[in-house]
């Protein structure tokens, strides 16, 4: 089994059978996951902040860091793998962990920014596990596009 581990602002994709693309302990960050069932390719980007306009230099160095540049970069990578363009989208993360008063709710802003970018690309999430106050570790399988989420307190579940 191959495992691709993504850190903050990383993105990656694969169509190698048996591969798992994984990112650990998403808090307010959002994992945008794409799956092309035609070529069995999966891709994920670990979005940290909503909008690249706040730091264009950072966006160039690490496009996955921001929702807008991250999603377009991931789609480009999927295209390089030969994606048919018929992709499923799954979303996870966007929690509100650091600030219980919901001021400067980065998780919600990340979620809305991701959905806005997808909407502009005529894409929408097939399924999502967003919000709340729990961190999520996310693993996406190339074989079937299923996503396994886990949290130390909640255990494991799938979307």
């Amino acid at each position: 089994m191959n495992e691709i581990i993504l850190g903050l602002g990383d993105y990656g994709a694969s169509k190698t059978p048996g591969t798992i693309i994984k990112t650990y302990a998403l808090g307010s960050c959002v994992a945008v996951m794409l799956y092309d069932p035609v070529i069995q390719a999966a891709g994920m980007v670990h979005v940290v902040l909503p909008d690249s306009s706040i730091d264009s230099k950072k966006a160039q160095q690490k496009p996955g860091y921001f929702a807008d540049t991250g999603i377009s970069s991931l789609l480009a990578l999927m295209e390089q793998l030969g994606s048919s363009g018929q992709v499923w989208v799954k979303l996870a993360g966007g929690a509100q962990i650091a600030d219980p008063n919901f001021r400067f709710n980065v998780g919600k802003r990340n979620t809305l920014a991701v959905k806005k970018c997808l909407w502009a690309l005529r894409l929408g999430a097939l399924t999502e596990d967003l919000g709340g106050d729990l961190s999520r570790t996310v693993a996406l399988r190339t074989d079937d596009g299923m996503v396994v989420l886990s949290n130390p307190k909640k255990g494991e579940w799938m979307i």
Binding site: F102, R103, N105, R109, L112, A113, K115, K116, W119
Partner: peptide, 11 residues
């Protein structure tokens, strides 16, 4: 406001 992808918070 989420329908319009805007985060509106009471401040």
């Amino acid at each position: 406001m989420e329908m319009f992808f805007v985060d509106a918070e009471h401040m």
